[in-house]
Protein backbone atom coordinates (compact mmCIF):
# COMPACT_ATOMS: atom_id res chain seq x y z
CA UNK A 1 0.00 0.00 0.00
CA UNK A 2 1.46 3.30 -0.93
CA UNK A 3 -1.12 6.01 -0.55
CA UNK A 4 0.38 9.44 -0.32
CA UNK A 5 0.03 10.82 3.14
CA UNK A 6 -1.33 14.01 1.59
CA UNK A 7 -4.49 12.13 0.75
CA UNK A 8 -4.96 11.69 4.46
CA UNK A 9 -5.76 8.83 6.73
CA UNK A 10 -9.39 9.83 6.72
CA UNK A 11 -9.61 9.56 2.97
CA UNK A 12 -7.90 6.19 2.99
CA UNK A 13 -10.21 4.94 5.72
CA UNK A 14 -13.18 6.13 3.70
CA UNK A 15 -11.93 4.17 0.72
CA UNK A 16 -11.35 1.05 2.79
CA UNK A 17 -14.80 1.41 4.25
CA UNK A 18 -16.28 1.63 0.80
CA UNK A 19 -14.23 -1.33 -0.41
CA UNK A 20 -15.14 -3.35 2.65
CA UNK A 21 -18.83 -3.19 1.98
CA UNK A 22 -18.66 -6.62 0.38
CA UNK A 23 -16.07 -8.33 2.58
CA UNK A 24 -12.43 -7.93 3.61
CA UNK A 25 -11.44 -4.30 2.82
CA UNK A 26 -7.67 -4.92 2.83
CA UNK A 27 -8.02 -7.79 0.40
CA UNK A 28 -10.40 -5.79 -1.78
CA UNK A 29 -7.89 -2.94 -1.80
CA UNK A 30 -5.02 -5.20 -2.85
CA UNK A 31 -7.15 -6.80 -5.53
CA UNK A 32 -8.15 -3.41 -6.87
CA UNK A 33 -4.49 -2.41 -6.96
CA UNK A 34 -3.63 -5.62 -8.84
CA UNK A 35 -6.27 -4.82 -11.43
CA UNK A 36 -4.98 -1.30 -11.87
CA UNK A 37 -1.42 -2.57 -12.15
CA UNK A 38 -2.50 -5.06 -14.79
CA UNK A 39 -4.31 -2.33 -16.68
CA UNK A 40 -1.36 0.01 -16.70
CA UNK A 41 1.03 -2.82 -17.51
CA UNK A 42 -0.83 -3.14 -20.80
CA UNK A 43 -0.36 0.47 -21.77
CA UNK A 44 2.61 1.94 -19.94
CA UNK A 45 4.37 -0.93 -18.19
CA UNK A 46 7.31 1.18 -17.05
CA UNK A 47 4.98 3.44 -15.06
CA UNK A 48 2.40 0.93 -13.94
CA UNK A 49 3.16 1.06 -10.22
CA UNK A 50 3.28 4.83 -10.03
CA UNK A 51 0.11 5.26 -12.07
CA UNK A 52 -1.81 2.70 -10.04
CA UNK A 53 -0.88 4.60 -6.91
CA UNK A 54 -2.05 7.88 -8.43
CA UNK A 55 -5.44 6.33 -9.16
CA UNK A 56 -5.74 4.97 -5.63
CA UNK A 57 -4.83 8.35 -4.18
CA UNK A 58 -7.42 10.15 -6.25
CA UNK A 59 -9.99 7.50 -5.49
CA UNK A 60 -9.33 7.80 -1.76
CA UNK A 61 -9.56 11.56 -1.98
CA UNK A 62 -12.97 11.31 -3.64
CA UNK A 63 -14.13 8.83 -1.02
CA UNK A 64 -12.84 11.14 1.72
CA UNK A 65 -14.72 14.06 0.18
CA UNK A 66 -17.91 12.09 0.52
CA UNK A 67 -18.46 11.54 -3.18
CA UNK A 68 -21.05 8.83 -3.70
CA UNK A 69 -19.28 5.93 -5.41
CA UNK A 70 -21.67 3.18 -6.35
CA UNK A 71 -19.24 0.88 -8.12
CA UNK A 72 -15.69 1.37 -6.85
CA UNK A 73 -14.04 -0.63 -9.63
CA UNK A 74 -15.90 1.19 -12.38
CA UNK A 75 -15.13 4.52 -10.72
CA UNK A 76 -11.46 3.54 -10.41
CA UNK A 77 -11.42 2.62 -14.09
CA UNK A 78 -12.75 6.06 -14.96
CA UNK A 79 -9.95 7.68 -12.97
CA UNK A 80 -7.43 5.27 -14.46
CA UNK A 81 -8.41 6.28 -17.98
CA UNK A 82 -7.85 9.92 -17.15
CA UNK A 83 -4.53 9.16 -15.49
CA UNK A 84 -3.51 7.11 -18.50
CA UNK A 85 -4.42 9.95 -20.83
CA UNK A 86 -2.27 12.35 -18.80
CA UNK A 87 0.64 9.90 -18.70
CA UNK A 88 0.47 9.30 -22.44
CA UNK A 89 0.58 13.01 -23.08
CA UNK A 90 3.68 13.32 -20.89
CA UNK A 91 5.27 10.32 -22.61
CA UNK A 92 4.55 11.78 -26.02
CA UNK A 93 6.21 15.06 -25.05
CA UNK A 94 9.23 13.16 -23.72
CA UNK A 95 9.52 11.16 -26.93
CA UNK A 96 9.52 14.30 -29.01
CA UNK A 97 12.33 15.68 -26.92
CA UNK A 98 14.45 12.57 -27.08
CA UNK A 99 17.05 11.85 -29.67
CA UNK A 100 16.37 9.31 -32.38
CA UNK A 101 16.73 5.95 -30.65
CA UNK A 102 17.79 4.26 -33.86
CA UNK A 103 20.93 6.34 -33.87
CA UNK A 104 22.06 5.26 -30.46
CA UNK A 105 25.49 3.68 -30.25
CA UNK A 106 25.76 0.19 -31.58
CA UNK A 107 25.44 -2.57 -29.05
CA UNK A 108 28.54 -4.37 -27.98
CA UNK A 109 28.03 -7.75 -29.64
CA UNK A 110 30.65 -9.39 -27.44
CA UNK A 111 28.92 -8.22 -24.31
CA UNK A 112 25.57 -9.39 -25.64
CA UNK A 113 26.97 -12.84 -26.23
CA UNK A 114 28.54 -12.95 -22.81
CA UNK A 115 25.29 -11.94 -21.18
CA UNK A 116 23.35 -14.55 -23.13
CA UNK A 117 25.79 -17.21 -21.91
CA UNK A 118 25.48 -15.99 -18.35
CA UNK A 119 21.70 -15.98 -18.61
CA UNK A 120 21.64 -19.55 -19.90
CA UNK A 121 23.97 -20.72 -17.17
CA UNK A 122 21.89 -18.83 -14.60
CA UNK A 123 18.73 -20.43 -15.87
CA UNK A 124 20.26 -23.89 -15.50
CA UNK A 125 21.16 -23.06 -11.90
CA UNK A 126 17.75 -21.58 -11.11
CA UNK A 127 15.95 -24.56 -12.60
CA UNK A 128 18.13 -26.92 -10.60
CA UNK A 129 16.78 -25.28 -7.45
CA UNK A 130 13.29 -26.51 -8.27
CA UNK A 131 12.10 -30.01 -7.53
CA UNK A 132 12.00 -32.28 -10.56
CA UNK A 133 8.22 -32.13 -10.99
CA UNK A 134 8.15 -28.33 -10.92
CA UNK A 135 11.08 -28.13 -13.30
CA UNK A 136 9.35 -30.46 -15.68
CA UNK A 137 6.09 -28.54 -15.39
CA UNK A 138 7.55 -25.12 -16.16
CA UNK A 139 9.53 -26.38 -19.12
CA UNK A 140 6.57 -28.28 -20.50
CA UNK A 141 4.10 -25.47 -19.90
CA UNK A 142 6.23 -22.94 -21.75
CA UNK A 143 7.63 -25.45 -24.21
CA UNK A 144 5.29 -25.21 -27.17
CA UNK A 145 4.52 -22.56 -29.74
CA UNK A 146 1.43 -21.19 -31.43
CA UNK A 147 -1.68 -23.34 -31.58
CA UNK A 148 0.17 -26.27 -30.05
CA UNK A 149 0.60 -24.18 -26.94
CA UNK A 150 -3.08 -24.30 -26.00
CA UNK A 151 -3.44 -27.99 -26.79
CA UNK A 152 -0.36 -28.86 -24.79
CA UNK A 153 -1.55 -26.91 -21.77
CA UNK A 154 -4.92 -28.57 -21.87
CA UNK A 155 -3.21 -31.96 -22.03
CA UNK A 156 -0.93 -30.99 -19.16
CA UNK A 157 -3.88 -29.89 -17.06
CA UNK A 158 -5.57 -33.23 -17.70
CA UNK A 159 -2.40 -35.12 -16.86
CA UNK A 160 -2.10 -33.18 -13.61
CA UNK A 161 -5.76 -33.67 -12.83
CA UNK A 162 -6.28 -29.95 -12.47
CA UNK A 163 -8.06 -27.17 -14.29
CA UNK A 164 -6.31 -25.03 -16.85
CA UNK A 165 -6.65 -22.04 -14.53
CA UNK A 166 -5.02 -23.87 -11.65
CA UNK A 167 -2.20 -25.07 -13.86
CA UNK A 168 -1.72 -21.56 -15.24
CA UNK A 169 -1.47 -20.11 -11.73
CA UNK A 170 1.12 -22.68 -10.78
CA UNK A 171 3.15 -22.10 -13.93
CA UNK A 172 2.98 -18.33 -13.47
CA UNK A 173 4.25 -18.62 -9.91
CA UNK A 174 7.08 -20.92 -10.96
CA UNK A 175 8.01 -18.68 -13.84
CA UNK A 176 8.05 -15.64 -11.53
CA UNK A 177 10.33 -17.51 -9.12
CA UNK A 178 12.70 -18.50 -11.90
CA UNK A 179 12.78 -14.98 -13.34
CA UNK A 180 13.45 -13.52 -9.90
CA UNK A 181 16.22 -16.06 -9.32
CA UNK A 182 17.73 -15.25 -12.71
CA UNK A 183 17.51 -11.52 -12.06
CA UNK A 184 19.27 -11.95 -8.72
CA UNK A 185 22.04 -13.95 -10.37
CA UNK A 186 22.54 -11.56 -13.27
CA UNK A 187 22.10 -8.30 -11.37
CA UNK A 188 23.14 -9.16 -7.81
CA UNK A 189 23.44 -5.51 -6.81
CA UNK A 190 19.86 -4.74 -7.76
CA UNK A 191 17.15 -5.13 -5.21
CA UNK A 192 13.92 -6.76 -6.35
Amino acid sequence: MSLDTASGTGAFDALLQRLGADGDPARAYERLRERLLALFRVYLPAESEALADVVLERLARRAGEGVVIEDVRAYALGIARLVLQEARLRASRRREAEADPTLQPDPDAGAEQEEAERALHGLHVCLSLLDAASRRLILDYYGADGGARIRLRQQLAQAHGSSLNALRNRALRLRARIEECLRARLDPARKP
Binding site: P45, A116, A119, L120, G122, L123, L139, I178, E179, L182
Partner: peptide, 19 residues
Amino acid sequence: ADPAQRERLRAARAFARLR
Protein backbone atom coordinates in the same frame (compact mmCIF):
# COMPACT_ATOMS: atom_id res chain seq x y z
CA ALA B 1 10.82 0.75 -22.82
CA ASP B 2 10.12 -0.86 -19.48
CA PRO B 3 13.27 -2.29 -17.85
CA ALA B 4 11.18 -5.00 -16.20
CA GLN B 5 9.92 -6.13 -19.58
CA ARG B 6 13.46 -6.22 -20.91
CA GLU B 7 14.48 -8.35 -17.97
CA ARG B 8 11.60 -10.68 -18.66
CA LEU B 9 12.68 -10.87 -22.29
CA ARG B 10 16.21 -11.72 -21.19
CA ALA B 11 14.80 -14.60 -19.18
CA ALA B 12 12.66 -15.65 -22.14
CA ARG B 13 15.72 -15.71 -24.33
CA ALA B 14 17.49 -17.94 -21.85
CA PHE B 15 14.46 -20.25 -21.86
CA ALA B 16 14.51 -20.25 -25.66
CA ARG B 17 18.16 -21.20 -25.73
CA LEU B 18 17.65 -23.90 -23.15
CA ARG B 19 14.82 -25.30 -25.24
